[in-house]
Design a protein around this nucleic acid. Structure first.
Lengths: 146, 146
DNA sequence: ATGCATGCAAATTGTTTGCACTTCA
DNA sequence: TGAAGTGCAAACAATTTGCATGCAT
């Protein structure tokens, strides 16, 4: 079963109706693999599939996020970014200076995650964290400038 | 020397002009201790001090953030929140269901921070992280509902 | 005095909403 | 059939910008 099919099935299982718009949005999301803003998804659909109203895109993304089929993250680009929730959570290091995005394996956060769960009975949604900072290159550049 | 005076000095040290607006914004920020949105700061100023244009508030906050005098965080309330950077970093657990905010000591993130620095030569700005999830009470409520 | 800062008003951007119409289950 | 979903246009809210004027250094 394709990954796309699996997505469609999950939507169905939650009792959502499978409309043309929804399957198109899922397809676009799958094709864009990686994060995508509502706007980007909308564009992709306009250029590769039929058309779906932007407000429908927003409504659908919100619904899928609530069902935890998608994760929503703020990558510091001034808009929400969505992604299909992976079996394996993954995170991002975002350089505040050059904008570079580095993938970060979930293993780095497991200790913190466990401690938080243990000490606060708080279940963190750590499937897609954004950590801002300075990358190697920009750190250097800044050191020189000082 | 008061904390407020220290703030003013830091602004000066960075070569910024100390205008009436800027010192008012710093004062409001100090008085509000804790996070505050541009809007909230603006309101505080209107009710307790003279008046400063909202756009000036935005411009100032941006500048102070760039100088790392302030930290900017997205606490999921649909607007940016600012806070004077503390000597001691601190973080927040935010319940996606009820909106409750729980303080999280920096110690929880030290291992991750060190590993990231070591493995990626990436300097994370971990002075104010927001971790979303479900608090104890909401976890329970959800378990019952299922 | 000069250039950084401000106020004002208008523009932008991302997102949400009301409502009549459509469509899937 | 009936509730859930959609398109459209309009409303919103947060933030940004252009430009003439003002003030700290």
């Amino acid at each position: 079963m394709s990954e796309y099919q699996a997505l469609v099935d999950r939507v169905r299982q939650h009792g959502l109706r499978l409309t043309r718009q929804r399957s198109t949005i899922l397809r676009a999301l799958y094709e864009l693999h990686g994060h995508a803003s509502a706007e980007k998804i909308h564009e992709r659909i306009r250029s590769h599939h039929g058309d779906v109203d932007l407000s429908t895109v927003y409504r659908t993304l919100e619904k899928l996020r609530d069902l935890r089929i998608l994760s929503q993250t703020d990558l510091g680009r001034g808009c929400a970014e969505f992604e299909v929730v992976a079996r394996q959570p993954h995170h991002h290091l975002i350089c505040q200076s050059c904008g570079r995005v580095i993938d970060l394996d979930h293993a780095y956060l497991v200790p913190a995650e466990q401690a938080i769960r243990r000490d606060f009975c708080f279940e963190p949604t750590l499937d897609h964290l954004a950590i801002f900072g300075l990358c190697h290159a920009c750190r250097r550049a800044e050191a020189v400038a000082d």
